[in-house]
């Protein structure tokens, strides 16, 4: 009777039993629903950004001029490339090329790390200049600029947090691949991790022009 709780329909479970029910479609659906919540979490912030840009068009332009668009562009390229490598790792696993799939995921994680390192230098540079909430430089700026940098720190910070979570997610998936729990016929978890990573990429696709280019 103890086995009964195990038999309950839990999808994509990693039981050793042969009769484990798997519902990849349901798992994917759940992942998409989760992505919607992430999208709307950022959506609230984008809405605020839009509203304040509408209210303080000049302040936002002035503030964006202070940003280093080169770092922004480099980070964009890094994330786009990491998205490619995640997509390639799925294709590789489908072709039973386990080593290539793992390699691509390693590459993704390294991209994520480089992105974060860039972000770190960028933030510390700005904080060093006194541009942070309550900081000496920001206090002398106009209201529009204060709001701009407030939103900048919140949005890129939250995005950075998502990069970290995505890296952890991919790390777990890599562990499962190496143990053959995720295989060419059972790779929904990898697909889900990929979906999450692509969402992180998409959010950056919008953050980049909004914070770095519109001056």
């Amino acid at each position: 009777m103890t086995e009964h709780s195990e038999v309950m329909q839990e999808e994509t479970q990693i039981h050793s039993g042969a009769h484990v029910h798997r519902d990849d479609e349901g798992s994917k659906m759940a992942m998409w629903l989760f992505l919607f919540t992430e999208l709307l979490l950022f959506g609230g912030l984008f809405l605020l950004y839009g509203s304040y840009r509408f209210e303080y068009a000049d302040g936002f332009k002035a503030a964006a001029a202070d940003m280093n668009s080169v770092i922004g562009a480099v980070n964009t390229l890094i994330l786009l490339t990491s998205s490619l490598s995640v997509a390639l790792s799925i294709a590789a696993l489908q072709r039973k090329q386990k080593a290539l799939a793992l390699g691509m995921l390693w590459f993704t994680i390294i991209c994520g790390l480089v992105f974060l390192v860039n972000k770190y230098f960028e933030w510390s540079h700005e904080i060093g200049m006194g541009i942070y909430p309550g900081g000496p430089a920001l206090e002398n700026m106009s209201n529009g600029e204060i709001i701009y940098f407030g939103l900048y720190y919140v949005m890129t910070g939250l995005h950075g947090l998502h990069v970290i979570v995505g890296m952890i997610f991919i790390g777990f998936v890599m562990f499962f691949i190496s143990r053959d729990k995720i295989t060419a016929t059972n790779y929904q978890k990898l697909e889900n991790a990929g979906l999450y990573w692509h969402l992180v990429d998409i959010i950056w696709i919008f953050l980049f022009p909004l914070f770095y280019l519109l001056h």
Partner: peptide
Amino acid sequence: HTNTNNGEHSVSYGTYFMVWLGLVALT
């Protein structure tokens, strides 16, 4: 028969590279 779906689609590596090139170009 449980949804062990997947496997139906496998995109060529080339397609992904093309998409990536498009993204870089747009950037």
